[in-house]
Write a protein that binds this DNA or RNA. Structure first.
Lengths: 202, 202
DNA sequence: GTCTATAGGGTGATAGAC
DNA sequence: GTCTATCACCCTATAGAC
């Protein structure tokens, strides 16, 4: 049982790496087996099918992407601090898994039904609505300039996520290696927070 | 020759639709043949292989995505007007082809080398650099608040492109149908331009 | 130019020895 | 639990009749 647990974990890690880079359609069971250093038959022994293995990796990815940001969204902070917190948490989170957003967005497009179930299961949506209401309230108080809260939310998300989705393009066009890209994203935490707060100044 | 031309075009249009939605790995030659209403063998008769057919569709997509924005980047306008123009052109352009950015970004990640050749062929990069220089100059004049021009450029791009990349998610989470999404993107042109210009106020 | 039939190779999944 | 061998199917690509 002790090796069992390890092998299972090795398979999941290998599957995560392969699926993340190649997607469901592009990934091969042989690739995953090679990456895990085991036989192809073992994959089916532990996880019945490619589809099941993918579901596990995908669900895990969505949870990882949202869990920490979700808690930050619910915290009791002044709205400006909360924006800074969400931006910082989100960029940190994705920096640890740079291929995660592209992976999720791509597979959502391929199979929208899957995500409907998954995203509904997490308690994300209430917290997003809370966040939007707090921003709307700050506008009413005159603390923020009045803008469409949904457009604002999408913009904040966009500025955090997009650089990673476009990572290969950014790296090529502006000749930045992985280390430099990491530094750019670290700098970006302050940039995005400042950018948003300036844009919302009355 | 007259039917020849038509069939060729039908194939390209079918290939574009299928490749856009399913990607290179996910698309099947049978899908494209069905979509074009012809036989599978015809695809190979007109375009030797799946790869060649894909290359044509992909190159065409990149050109479409960049051509109009590229000219706008080079125009002689005050920087604030140019930002408004770029944002408006870009959102209009993508609205006509909502799956285009996801398609390009996804395939760039799968095969970075392909894009290196393609993006270099267009004259995009000089115009991007011009745009960044003009923004930097506006900062020097005190017309704009001083920020990192590269971070700024990525942010503008992000706010234009990301909504389309995340379209299925946005539509589900906020219960917007295709018509409403179209209206949101129309509204977004002004939102993004205002947001950026406010964020850059000294 | 357009079709049917099929080659040739790969892929997910399973059977069965150890 | 782990491996080899193999099945059954699917996919790209081509040959060849019309």
């Amino acid at each position: 049982m002790q090796t069992n647990n390890t092998t299972e974990q090795q398979i999941i890690e290998a599957a995560r790496k392969i699926f993340m880079h190649k997607g469901l359609a592009g990934a091969r069971m042989q690739d995953i087996a090679d990456e895990a250093g085991i036989n192809k038959a073992m994959l089916h022994y532990y996880y019945r099918s490619k589809e099941k293995l993918f579901d596990i990796v995908f669900d895990e990815a969505v949870d990882k992407l949202l869990a920490r940001v979700n808690t930050m969204l619910a915290e009791d902070l002044p709205i400006a601090r909360k924006i800074e917190g969400v931006v910082s948490f989100y960029i940190t989170n994705i920096s640890d898994n740079p291929y995660l957003p592209m992976f999720v967005l791509n597979e959502v497009q391929q199979n929208p039904d899957r995500i409907i179930q998954r995203f509904t299961h997490t308690h994300l949506f209430p917290n997003i609505q809370l966040f939007m209401k707090e921003m709307a309230a700050a506008m009413e108080r005159g603390e923020f300039r009045k803008v469409n809260p949904l457009q604002l939310l999408i913009s904040i998300l966009a500025m955090c996520v997009f650089p990673f989705v476009a990572k290969p393009l950014v790296q090529h066009l502006f000749k930045v290696n992985d280390v430099q890209f990491g530094m750019m994203m670290e700098e970006r935490k302050r940039f995005v927070a400042d950018f948003v707060l300036h844009a919302l100044k009355p």
